[in-house]
Design a protein around this nucleic acid. Structure first.
Length: 260
DNA sequence: ACAATATCCTGCGAGC
DNA sequence: TGCTCGCAGGATATTG
């Protein structure tokens, strides 16, 4: 489920209940998770000093300088609840907290990952090494976007899904951004032209910003492409949507409203 | 360099 | 009822 705004929402929901807490115990309920990161038990006794985000990664900073990088992939979620509460069927990791609460990672499809880095900058988390600029910060400038986009070819949707170009965009927000920009997902990057590149840049920023700010109301936004996408029609012209498989997943678009 | 495909997983609804 | 198929808001490796 999570793209940049979703990851932000998860962090916002749990931050106050986690930061400042000392970890009392760790139990890994999924063998693959345990095998991929054998050091999870060593988190016991440490205190969480901060919660952050890089791309779609949730970064948990500890008092010993280490960072736990959590990626929720398709179905992952983080919740904080009292230890007395029943453990949901798909719970893969439980981190006990000082105050009697528990941070739980729930992930139906088990594609989510948890990795511990001794030092975030050491490059021990492969997915973070070539992570592109954060779209909602000043490091993501039009100029930088233009240059990086200019160096590549192929379909625009592929470019948006590439985390090394811009961090945090996924399949759904990618479609939304392209709809707002009036650009087809299978348009070629090399054919875009200056004005469309600028539009794309603006929409990436404005859309992600709006989605983060009004995250709770997103479901009811009937003027969003996402709303019509799940129903197969265009929220602007009312016509039927087309879809095309790009990067192994479907991109939805309106053939009338997205011409470029 | 890019595109298509397979892979990692589970579960849901559609269609037979 | 039960089966198979396609699909799901992700990332990566491999092959053409």
């Amino acid at each position: 489920m999570p793209e940049l705004p979703d990851v932000e929402a998860v962090i916002g929901r749990i931050r106050e209940k986690v930061v400042g807490q000392r970890i009392t115990c760790v139990s890994v309920l999924d063998e693959r998770l345990a095998a991929a990161e054998p050091g999870l038990g060593s988190l016991s006794g440490r205190t969480v000093v901060a919660l952050g985000r890089r791309g779609k990664y949730i970064l948990v900073s500890l008092d010993d300088g280490r960072t736990v990088a959590i990626h929720l992939r398709m179905t992952g979620n983080l919740i904080v609840c009292n230890r007395a509460e029943a453990v949901h069927r798909h719970t893969r990791l439980v981190i006990g907290l000082d105050d009697g609460g528990e941070l739980r990672m729930v992930d139906q499809r088990r594609l989510g990952t948890v990795q511990i880095a001794r030092d975030l900058k050491s490059g021990s988390i492969p997915g973070l090494i070539r992570m592109g600029p954060e779209p909602l910060t000043e490091e993501f400038t039009l100029e930088r976007f233009r240059v990086r986009l200019g160096r590549r070819r192929g379909m625009v949707k592929s470019a948006l899904l590439d985390q090394s170009l811009v961090a945090g965009i996924g399949n759904v927000y990618g479609d939304e951004i392209l709809f707002q920009s009036g650009i087809r997902p299978d348009a070629r990057v090399e054919d875009l032209g200056e004005s469309r590149i600028e539009t794309l840049y603006d929409k990436i920023r404005s859309l992600l910003q709006t989605a983060c700010e009004h995250y709770a109301d997103l479901h009811g936004r009937k003027d969003w492409f996402m709303y019509g996408r799940s129903r197969g029609y265009c929220v602007r012209c009312g016509g039927g949507l087309d879809r095309r498989k790009i990067q192994g997943r479907y991109s939805w678009f309106c053939p009338r409203c997205q011409d470029g």
